[in-house]
Amino acid sequence: MKMKTEETIKLIKYVTGSVAAVLLAAALQLQFAYAAGIITLLTIQDTKKETVRITAKRMIIFVIMTILSAVIFPLAGYHVWAFGIVLIPYLFSCMALDMKEAIAPIAVLCTHYVSAKSCSPSMILNEFLILMIGAGIGTLWNLYMPDGRRQLLEYQKTVDDKIVYILHRMAIYIELEDKTDYTGSCFDELDAMLVNLKKEALRYMNNHLITEDDYYYEYMQMRARQCVILKRIYADIIRLTTTPEQGKALADFIRQTADEFAEQNNVETLLSELERLHHHYEQQQLPVTRQEFENRSMLYHILEDMKAFLDIKKDFITAR
């Protein structure tokens, strides 16, 4: 199976970072030098922010674990039962502080106190340096991340193209009375695309430490909200039993929306056209039969949903 570029880079970071950590710890003549390499492995995460967050948690838990060890081991002895006694408040602290990620590597450092049968200042310094070397090199190595913007833009384009396709399809089926082959499978595909876009947008956002670039995440949320509106419009279209003459004007407007669908479009022109269409509907003769009334009501509901669809985009553009 072919590895992705991100996976290859991460593998290289694992190997080079771990070896560098062990070599540095050994050069400083630290005991248990290989533990620094293991901590580096566990430090390297998928994003820069996640790496920094986990490193900070491990520093806090290290302090708690060392205090517990320095108090309990000299009193209870350096054996397995004493280790179990230390683990009880240690694990409770990890859970209470939501620092489960710190449990394993810091517990390993705790075993070093047992192996060395010492919690002396020099031994505590030894473990602190192992943690600093392992976490420091892991964090430093993870400062390099593939930009990921190109793939993000590709996901964004697939979402936009699918929405354009859905809008064109809606325009067609508003004018067709036979809707037996009009299914909602396209929304399943769009939902899957939005999941991918969200994943990449979060990765991109969390790889910016100084400034949080949330544009693409907000963009994904905007399209997700529009998707909810489109599903409502689809539900109304399949309930149409006939095609009122007003349906053609609405279908033309939906086509226009699809044709002018663009990331930077502030939709002001489309909203003006929608207002004109709304006014045009108000000038029409009232429906005579119950069926006409129900179908006209459905069209009006679609019109209102199209306004909500465009307002979501307008709010997004205005907020930027």
Rank of each mutant, 00 (worst) to 15 (best):
R203S: 03
K162E: 14
S185T: 15
T183N: 09
E189F: 01
L11T: 06
Y217D: 03
I166N: 06
L131V: 03
T183F: 09
L271C: 06
M298W: 00
L286I: 11
H280Y: 15
L28T: 07
F73R: 13
R203A: 03
V63F: 08
L167W: 06
E294D: 13
M59Y: 14
S122F: 08
P74E: 07
H301P: 02
S115Y: 11
L240G: 04
A70Y: 07
L299P: 00
S120A: 01
L75K: 08
V288Y: 14
E282Y: 08
R169Q: 14
V159L: 05
K248D: 12
I174G: 07
Y144C: 03
S93F: 13
R149Q: 14
E218N: 08
T158C: 07
L270E: 14
L310N: 05
A135K: 07
F83P: 06
M298D: 00
A70S: 13
Y300F: 05
N126F: 09
L11Q: 05
H301C: 00
K57N: 10
E127I: 11
T139E: 07
Y113C: 05
L41Y: 05
L277M: 11
F261L: 03
R58K: 04
A319V: 06
C186T: 11
Q283A: 11
L153Q: 15
N295R: 06
D259A: 07
R232Q: 11
I38Y: 11
A135W: 01
A26E: 10
Q256K: 15
P105F: 05
H168F: 12
K162T: 15
I174T: 13
R276C: 09
I302R: 00
Y219H: 08
K2S: 13
V52D: 00
I124M: 02
Y182H: 08
A96Q: 14
K313R: 01
F309Q: 03
F62M: 01
G148S: 10
R239Q: 08
A235M: 08
Y90N: 05
A116D: 12
E275C: 12
K4D: 10
R239L: 09
E101F: 07
E282W: 12
T43E: 11
A26H: 10
E218F: 04
L131D: 02
I64Q: 12
T241C: 04
L230R: 01
L91H: 09
I229C: 08
Q285I: 12
K162Q: 14
L176A: 12
